[in-house]
């Protein structure tokens, strides 16, 4: 069981938490919706919940609830720039298909 971030992503998460002025880490969540079945969501975490699993990568704390983990086990979170856009990108080995817009995936 693992979840990790690249150094670039870790940098961005730290900066975002600093700018916000609080929070213990980053919550990685899965929602059942979207074109291909599941969608990712990234939220600030103020405190871990009871069913959360916690990972530490590149000095950043990542929280994910136990139910979601199987879908994203092994995922590495990266920070990329595509043209004028920049943001987080999921490199999820479990995803078998990604929808055209990229907001959702199937396992």
């Amino acid at each position: 069981m693992s979840l990790s971030v690249t150094p670039k992503a870790a940098n961005q998460i730290r900066k975002a938490l600093q700018k916000r002025g609080g929070g213990v880490g980053l919550r990685v969540a899965i929602k059942t919706s979207g074109c291909s079945g599941y969608a990712y969501a990234l939220e600030f975490a103020d405190a871990p919940a009871a069913e959360d699993l916690s990972f530490e990568s590149e000095g950043v704390q990542l929280l994910v609830d136990a139910k979601s983990l199987p879908m994203i086990d092994g995922t590495q979170l990266d920070w990329v720039r595509e043209g004028l856009n920049e943001g987080f990108k999921f490199n999820n080995p479990n995803a078998s298909a990604t929808c055209g817009c990229g907001e959702s995936f199937a396992v």
Partner: peptide
Amino acid sequence: MALLQIAEPGRAAAPHQHR
């Protein structure tokens, strides 16, 4: 692949519905 941003807890935008 769309690029994601971090949202406040509970505020993550729901992805659009597939028609």
